[in-house]
Structure formats: structure tokens, C-alpha cells
């Protein structure tokens, strides 16, 4: 249900990912008064990317809370608050600053429920922006999702599109565990039709974004759009039928959807904007190898960011993001095409 009856019912429901998450926040804050938003500049300023605009005016300073530049304490406070009855949405401005909250996140939040044998929950959402683009440099461009997905007790969600973002965000707020919700800044302004009304997308559910029968591209967040563009070219230029699976949630992983797609297509490539080494692409490749090796017609391939800090210069930065051409070339090799 939209928050402010008439004002928010638009005939044209093509809205951006950023607006979709904002709508989810409005709705969740409206229906549960324990939900609070905490972070740097999330209040009257409406967020440095205008991603929290209007919440302060609607819900007031008691529930939309500006903080000092103290990421570790803000997050620690949110964990404590969640254990004591709040349902905080905590914003960390850049995914790079997650390094500052790691102790409270990994040693505290992730373990509370397990260590207390179910005595306590930590129902909170840590929302942060990630991704590469616009020369933000090595300390403002990292995509550290695989690092977080490694920790038992944390859920990691990464939407690629507006409708998914809204439904997943609502599920994240209602989840009784610490959920890290990571949006690629380069997807913020992508628009799509977002249905009105209550549409919750369960966490740990991947989505088939394009059906195909010869190869599956597994992707997440921004990389899903690269995969979809590549799939189109593969069909037109090489007559290859490509399936695109958007993982949507890294942890827990929807293993069922992954293996059933590979059973059908027999070929898999994994695409990610994070680093290649020790990351999600390796995890999925290994999962496929363990569970459906017999169905494979080719080795599982991976395309991800090279293992270097994200450089500033536009010419260097461009190397970091797997391109449509690279995906097309890589998939072609799986069909015996030499690049």
C-alpha cells in the first residue's frame, strides 16, 4: 500500500531503482513504527544522493536520524537497538566504509542470534551504495559483497532493477536477521515498471530474467544488465540461446535455481562487478561443479573485476567493469569460437 494515498498513486509507474527503494522505506516505516532510519545526512538533507528524500518531513527527527561521522558507533548502536526492540535501517554512505563497521557487523551482529541460542535477534538492514564509475577513486568504488557473504549469519542482497529492489527491500526490513542491502550507484536511475501494492520478494530467491537453452549467464546487480545486453547480441550474431539468471541474493544463495538452469543449458558463466579471486563467481562455479558436473558441456567460466584497487583515471577505471563485448567473446569460446 502506498504511503500517502493519492499523492503516490501514479498512472505511469515507471520509476527508478532509487525511487523504488525510497517507496519501500516509506511503506515499511508507515506500517511498523519500530522501523527507524539512521545514517549520515539521511535526514533533512535527504541523503547525498537524494536517496532518502521526504522521509524526514514525513516521519520526523525521532525516526529519521542524522548522525555524526561515526560509522562504527552508528552501526553498533543499531545492533543494540535491534536487539532491544527497534528495527533499524542503517545507511552507510559508501560500501567502502563497511570496513569501519566490520567489527560490530561480523563479531557482534552476525553472531548474536546463534550465540544466544535464539535468545536474541538482530532485525536490521544495512543499506549501502557500491560500484564503479565517475572516477571516485580507490576508496570510494569498492564492491565488497563477497567478503560479507562469507560470514555465516549475514544476509546479502543486491538488486539489479527497480521492482526487485522494492520487493527485496521490504523483505529485508521484515527479516529478523542482519541484512546487507547493496545497490550499485550506476543502477540508481534505471527505470522500470513497479507495481503498486504489497509485493514482497522473498530473500534467497534468484530470478530468471531471460529464458534460454544453450548457456546460462549468472549475474548480480549492475552485471545483470551487461548479461542481458550480451544475451541479445549472442542470439542475433551467433544464434546462441542464452538464459540470464539474476541471483538477487548472495547469501543465502538460491542453489535450486542455479542447478536447474544448468541442468537445462549445460553451460554456465558467472559475471560479477566484484573481484574475481575468492569471490562469488568462484563460489557459484564450485557449486555447479559439485552438484551438476555431469550436465556440463563446457567448463564454467567467470568474468569479474581484476584484482587491483579501483583506479581513478577514466582510462584505468574502464578496465574494472566487465563489458558486454567481453561477455559475448567469453561465451563464444564456450561454443568453440576462438576470440
Amino acid at each position: 500500500m502506498p504511503p500517502d494515498s493519492s499523492a503516490n498513486i501514479q498512472s505511469d509507474r515507471n520509476i527508478t531503482l532509487k525511487a523504488a527503494v525510497l517507496e519501500a522505506m516509506f511503506e515499511e516505516m508507515k506500517c511498523d513504527e519500530n522501523v527507524v532510519l539512521i545514517g549520515e545526512d539521511v535526514g533533512a538533507a535527504g541523503g547525498v544522493f537524494k536517496q532518502t528524500e521526504g522521509l524526514f518531513e514525513t516521519f520526523g527527527a525521532d525516526r529519521v536520524i542524522d548522525t555524526p561521522i561515526s560509522e562504527s558507533a552508528i552501526f553498533g548502536l543499531s545492533v543494540g537497538a535491534a536487539m532491544a526492540g527497534s528495527r533499524p535501517i542503517v545507511e552507510v554512505m559508501f560500501g567502502d566504509f563497511l570496513t569501519l563497521v566490520m567489527d560490530q557487523l561480523v563479531n557482534q551482529a552476525a553472531k548474536v542470534h546463534y550465540m544466544s541460542a535464539g535468545g536474541f535477534n538482530v532485525p536490521l538492514v544495512l543499506r549501502t551504495g557500491i560500484g564503479i564509475g565517475g572516477s571516485l577513486g580507490p576508496q570510494h568504488s569498492q564492491s565488497l559483497h563477497s567478503w560479507l557473504a562469507h560470514i555465516p549469519g549475514l544476509k546479502v542482497v543486491m538488486p539489479s532493477s527497480a521492482a526487485d529492489a522494492k520487493g527485496l527491500f521490504k523483505a529485508a526490513v521484515r527479516d529478523n536477521n542482519p541484512v546487507i542491502f547493496m545497490e550499485d550507484r550506476m543502477t540508481y536511475n534505471l527505470k522500470e515498471h513497479v507495481p503498486t501494492g504489497e509485493k514482497i520478494i522473498p530473500l534467497a530467491s534468484a530470478a530468471v530474467k531471460r529464458k534460454g537453452v544453450e548457456v546460462t549467464i549468472f549475474a548480480i546487480s549492475r552485471a545483470v544488465h551487461t548479461a542481458l545486453a550480451a544475451a541479445e547480441i549472442l542470439l542475433e550474431e551467433k544464434n546462441i540461446s542464452t538464459e540470464v539468471v539474476d541471483l538477487r541474493t548472495l547469501a543465502p544463495l538460491d542453489v535450486e535455481t542455479i542447478v536447474s538452469s544448468v541442468r537445462k543449458t549445460g553451460r554456465a558463466i558467472v559475471l560479477d562487478g566484484g573481484y574475481k579471486s575468492f569471490g562469488i563467481t568462484g563460489e557459484i562455479a564450485a557449486t555447479i561443479g559439485e552438484l551438476v558436473f555431469d550436465y556440463l558441456d563446457a567448463p564454467v567460466m567467470r568474468l569479474a573485476a581484476p584484482d587491483i584497487p579501483v583506479p581513478y583515471s577514466p582510462s584505468l577505471e574502464s578496465l574494472m567493469v566487465p563489458s558486454v563485448d567481453q561477455v559475448v567473446a567469453k561465451v563464444s569460446t564456450m561454443f568453440g569460437d576462438s576470440v
Binding site: I69, G137, P138, Q139, P309, P311, S313, S315
Partner: peptide
């Protein structure tokens, strides 16, 4: 820094600069 650091991370070893941090503190 050969374009690797940019405005937020300008350093000059000869001038004695160890680092420019983009993170507060």
C-alpha cells in the same frame, strides 16, 4: 600518482606527503 589516485589521493613523496585519505579520520 600516474592517475591512480586522483584528486582525493594526491601524494608527493618528495614533498614528504605520505598519504591523502578519502576516509574521514
Amino acid at each position: 600518482n600516474k592517475g591512480r589516485g586522483g584528486t582525493l589521493h594526491l601524494t608527493d613523496r618528495e614533498a614528504g606527503f605520505l598519504s591523502t585519505s578519502g576516509l574521514v579520520g
